[in-house]
Amino acid sequence: MSMQDDFYAGVYWSGRKESADECARRAEVFFRLLSQCDPTYARWFEQANSLKKALQLQFEPTYETLLRFFKSRKYNEGAFGVGFSAWTGHEEDGHGGSVMLSCGSAVTPPPNNCLLYLPDEGPAAERVLTASVLTEMMRALVLAWDPDDGGVYSQAYQELRDQPVGPPHMGWLMYFSHRLGELPPLPAPVRVEPVEDKGSLIILTPERFNGHDPAHVALADQVRALLDRAGLLEDLCPG
């Protein structure tokens, strides 16, 4: 029996000063597109110090509500933009998801990112952890935030490769904005899809990637070397 691999999705972008209004418009698009990917993301709650309190903080991620949040002292961090987090209200560990967002900052190094934590157990994980659904989730992240780069990252691969040439930017899926340059030719079974006019999405394997699988690790290493040689892994900042 193979060991399980866990995943999170994230997109990252360099200093881009945006107002609470602009961040709220982007966030509304993100939550709307994400809700179409899977029922897991149909309802949202603010986070709080206790489960009981947090479950009383359900909200509709409309532009008006998000703007009110992003202008509040709780979430507005001045020069650092907006810092916001929310979760799906699933009480069982691993069955739901959460979002952590930093938007609107022009400081260096830029904290701008949107991280999406994915279910790793139960029916939701079976539905979400597929190349087709994760492709739509990455499209939601890209179309909302117009990031420089991002991906669906394998925890096992990150732990295996956390030293060589800086952060392990490799994931099951990876996104690169056209601003970063052109992708090199990549080996089968890797697939590359455009995300409208913004950039390219790389899908390493059609089946679920596993950072404990030597064949998957070898493929990720091969693709990583090609992307690094093409200059696409410089100055990227996945956490």
Score class of each variant (00 low, 15 high):
residue 81 G to A: 04
residue 161 R to T: 11
residue 58 Q to M: 05
residue 165 V to M: 08
residue 49 N to S: 15
residue 49 N to C: 10
residue 63 Y to V: 04
residue 106 A to G: 13
residue 107 V to E: 00
residue 69 F to E: 04
residue 227 L to K: 12
residue 114 C to E: 03
residue 128 V to F: 08
residue 165 V to H: 10
residue 94 G to V: 08
residue 186 L to N: 02
residue 3 M to G: 02
residue 17 K to F: 02
residue 98 S to E: 13
residue 182 E to P: 01
residue 197 D to T: 12
residue 158 Q to R: 08
residue 87 W to K: 03
residue 187 P to H: 04
residue 8 Y to Q: 01
residue 218 A to I: 03
residue 133 V to K: 00
residue 4 Q to W: 02
residue 131 A to V: 08
residue 170 M to T: 14
residue 231 G to K: 07
residue 230 A to E: 09
residue 93 D to K: 03
residue 221 D to S: 12
residue 106 A to L: 04
residue 52 K to Q: 15
residue 216 H to Y: 05
residue 55 L to P: 05
residue 44 W to L: 09
residue 113 N to P: 00
residue 211 G to A: 01
residue 75 Y to S: 04
residue 17 K to R: 08
residue 17 K to Y: 01
residue 31 F to G: 06
residue 206 P to W: 02
residue 54 A to P: 04
residue 88 T to A: 10
residue 196 E to I: 00
residue 68 R to D: 12
residue 110 P to T: 14
residue 112 N to I: 01
residue 121 E to N: 02
residue 189 P to Q: 02
residue 171 G to D: 07
residue 38 D to E: 11
residue 185 P to G: 06
residue 145 W to N: 06
residue 174 M to T: 09
residue 31 F to T: 07
residue 101 L to K: 05
residue 102 S to M: 08
residue 183 L to Q: 07
residue 230 A to T: 12
residue 9 A to G: 15
residue 161 R to C: 10
residue 44 W to E: 11
residue 157 Y to S: 11
residue 197 D to L: 05
residue 233 L to D: 10
residue 179 R to F: 04
residue 183 L to S: 08
residue 125 A to R: 07
residue 218 A to M: 01
residue 8 Y to A: 03
